[in-house]
Design a protein around this nucleic acid. Structure first.
Length: 318
RNA sequence: GCACAGGUGGCCGAGCGGUUAAUGGCAGCAGACUGUAAAUCUGCCGCUCCUUGCGAGCUACGGAGGUUCGAAUCCUCCCCUGUGCA
């Protein structure tokens, strides 16, 4: 007990989009002298505001936030980058004697942060381009057959239609000169040195979907389309045909389709709402497997939920 | 009012006499996920029952009749919808 108690506490707040993580994280930070580390693959990008539901400027002035607005949309950011940036942020907060609160929406990033990634090579764009070209030439199933030859065990675990994962597995196996299944067995470095308290928000499905729909519609009302247009102008290439990937993120993709005349405004809003709902469902599936989560059945804005979360944190501080 | 074109499972949409609860898409539900992850992918998806099986029964293609061994598919009438002409 004494030994364990010596380790600093790390609070991890996880839950689907629009479940009220921001509200709860602010309440916890205020109460326990904390700082927030965002775990969101889109919020890391600068200039993306309305569609990302980042904490507002006022909220960020009230409580220090990390891993938000840390990279230019022109850059590719990855789970590996986040593992480094997130851990550095946590270490800094703990060193200051404050409580680090990770708010997690991106499951893979959260895993990278807490469990670590296997020790493999970073992505190689040239190799990927070649693989993609060959795949297009040889037709469906080619990537799967290639992986089957290189690493049958991996091929068994990755579906033949799942191109991105096939490509990564082949890439790793080729670059590291050993099958990815072997690479998987070594190198993951979990985050150590903290007592981790995981709090999960699990609102009732219908209520969550309702909130998602309202929020997605509100984003359009607040000028998502104009923001998207601005971002396209700023970050598209000279001929305005190539855009960074984040411009395909939820909401932004639909706003672009609206601008391109492919969708009416009503259709764009509907598609964005649907996209967010589908995303929330995937998040829920991912987080269900997360170990040792204290699940709270409600939204993070709810006073009773906030109280329950505070009690949980307080009891962990001892 | 007349002339066309249509009315298909929650929605869109194939099928146009006979392997069938009915191609496909969406939504929904469940699942996967190790550096693109707000991504990508998988399964289920009319109802009921059970010994959960390429199981049994029931109900289904606007409505009512009819033709046929057999109809979502052909015929008749009726009810709707869209377009054109009046």
């Amino acid at each position: 007990m004494a030994v364990v108690g010596d380790l600093p506490l790390l609070v991890v707040l996880l839950g689907p989009t629009a479940s009220g993580k921001t509200a709860l994280s602010l309440a916890l930070a205020e109460r326990f002298n904390g700082e927030v580390v965002s775990c969101d693959s889109v919020a890391v990008y600068r200039d993306f505001e309305i569609g990302t539901a980042k904490p507002s400027a006022a909220e960020r002035a009230q409580v220090p936030h990390h891993c938000i607005d840390i990279v230019s949309p022109e850059r590719e950011y990855s789970a590996g980058d986040y593992q480094r940036d997130g851990r550095a942020a946590i270490a800094g907060i703990a060193a200051r004697g404050r409580l680090p609160i990770v708010t997690g929406g991106t499951g893979l990033y959260l895993r990278a942060l807490l469990e670590g990634l296997f020790d493999g090579p970073q992505r190689s764009e040239p190799l990927r381009a070649r693989l993609r070209r060959s795949a297009a030439r040889h037709g469906a199933g080619w990537l799967a057959r290639l992986l089957e030859r290189i690493d049958p065990a991996a091929a068994e675990r990755i579906h033949a239609n799942d191109k991105p994962k096939l490509i990564r597995a082949i890439e790793v196996s080729l670059e590291a000169r050993r099958p990815i299944t072997e690479a998987w067995t070594v190198g993951t470095q979990p985050l150590t040195g903290y007592r981790i308290l995981r709090i999960g928000l699990a609102p009732e499905r219908a209520a969550l979907y309702q909130r998602i729909d309202a929020r997605a519609a509100a984003m359009f009302e607040r000028g998502l389309v104009a923001e998207t247009e601005r971002l396209m102008r700023k970050y598209g290439d000279e001929r305005r045909v190539l855009y960074p990937r984040i411009l395909d993120a939820l909401g932004y993709r639909q706003a672009r389709q609206l601008l391109a005349g492919e969708l009416t405004e009503a259709q764009a809003i509907g598609a964005a709402q649907r996209g967010h709902r589908n995303y929330a469902k995937r998040q829920l599936t991912w987080f269900r497997r997360e170990p040792e989560v204290r699940w709270l059945a409600g939204l993070g804005d709810d006073a009773a939920i906030q109280q329950a979360a505070m009690d949980a944190v307080a009891s962990c501080r001892g």
